[in-house]
């Protein structure tokens, strides 16, 4: 049972990570490409690491071996690290682009520049 949940989490995480990259490839301008990079990757990463940790627990329970706490601790540490650094680096890139004078694409020109 636990293994199936772990597999589901992993596949779901892989799917989110994949569609995040697809978004980066397909979005029309630089600033909208930031959105998939910041969010979809974070969720995908969290799901995959949660699935892996659950899988480690499930396998050691099935074999009645002691749970490998060190590996789980490392998995959580990597996940937290990515959770903090992914938005931070997204923000760093966005700020650099903004300072570099990159203008955002605002779609069709039918919308007036009212909110500037």
């Amino acid at each position: 049972m636990m293994e199936h949940v772990a597999h589901g989490l992993m596949i779901l995480g892989g799917f989110f990570a994949f569609s995040g990259s697809l978004g980066i490839l397909r979005m029309p301008d630089f600033y909208s490409r930031l959105h998939p990079a910041g969010t979809a990757d974070t969720l995908g990463q969290m799901l995959v690491f949660a699935g892996l940790a659950l899988k480690v627990i499930a396998v050691s329970l099935a074999e009645e071996a002691p749970v490998d706490g060190l590996s789980i601790g490392k998995l959580i540490a990597i996940s937290l690290l990515l959770f903090v650094t992914t938005p931070a680096s997204t923000h760093a890139i966005a700020r650099a682009a903004q300072l570099g004078g990159l203008k955002p694409w605002t779609g069709e020109k039918e919308r007036e520049d009212a909110d500037e």
Partner: peptide
């Protein structure tokens, strides 16, 4: 963001 990635690019109206 996943829905927008698989859809068409006209689904967004970005602004600052």
């Amino acid at each position: 963001v996943t829905r927008r990635s698989w859809g068409t690019s006209s689904a967004i109206q970005p602004r600052l």
